[in-house]
Computed example of a mutant assay.
Amino acid sequence: MIIELFGPPAAGKTTLAHALATELEKNGFDIQLIVSSRPAERGSIQVESTRALSWWRTALAAPLSRAAKLVSAGPVLLACARSDELTASLMDLLPPRTLLWSVRYRRYLSLLSRSWKMASTSDRIVIVDQGFLTALCSLALLARSADRRGIARGLELIPRPDLLVRLDAPRDILEARLRARLGRQGAVERLFEFNLQTSLQQIDTTSEVAHMFQEQGGRMMHVSSLDRRLLEKAVDRIVREAKSWDEEIDPVYRSLVERRRIVRAAR
């Protein structure tokens, strides 16, 4: 099962991803996190089990990865011709205005696509804190020209998760969080981050893309995680949905999954 979190910047997607992974694991599920935290935050997409997750290691690695972005740009440019089909299609559909963002997102999408393919064949519950819908919103803002037609085509191209969870928050709270986030960044970080105006535009783009997704028949769960109470409520709803999904999957497949869980637990 793939659970994708979706929402405007600073809505709390990564916080929810970690809280959800912890609670699902407590309920006996085997969990993997695909933690991306925006291209500006980390130079790669990390795929980790919750037992291996380390807050201090994540916090320490982030500044190092920011500096590594400049070094990694060269190999990415050389590898552009070898991009997977989905990445190439999205980049052709909504090409970023600048070379820098083109390099960053081609790499980001390639890593995400690779991780998604692995997740789609996994017997674990895989949580993606920022997946293809978030990437599509960003590309719409970065593109030389983007209209509803192009975004709609992008929605048709990207893979659908088993459960899409949309987070939202009042605009004034999101703006305050974004200002605080940008205020903590150094000059190098800002090269790989949207400025405040673009981040605020992304709030509107996220709402528009969510509406278009539903127009195409997509289903999503709406939650909020502004405080501890709302976060716990959101986690509880998603866990119940995951349990329901687990009960409905094919009995033969479920038997295989259970055997694998028993083997892992015995190790």
Rank of each mutant, 00 (worst) to 15 (best):
N195G: 15
L226S: 13
A210P: 06
Q197I: 07
H222C: 09
T205P: 10
L200G: 01
L196S: 02
N195L: 06
L182D: 10
A187P: 09
F213V: 07
D236T: 10
M220T: 05
A210Y: 03
E208H: 10
G186W: 00
M221W: 09
L191C: 01
E232P: 04
G186Y: 00
D236Q: 14
G183W: 00
V209F: 06
V209M: 09
V209L: 10
T205Y: 10
R181S: 15
Q202M: 09
E193A: 10
R237T: 08
I203K: 03
S207D: 13
F192C: 00
V223E: 14
M212L: 11
F192H: 00
T206R: 07
Q202W: 05
E208C: 08
Q201K: 10
L191R: 03
Q185V: 00
E232Y: 09
F213R: 04
F194V: 04
V239A: 11
R219K: 13
D204H: 13
L200H: 02
V223L: 11
T206S: 14
V188C: 06
E193G: 03
R229D: 11
T205V: 13
D236A: 15
E208T: 08
R190W: 01
E189W: 05
R184F: 10
R229P: 06
L200K: 09
G217L: 07
T205W: 15
Q197R: 14
G186K: 01
H211P: 03
R229F: 09
D227G: 09
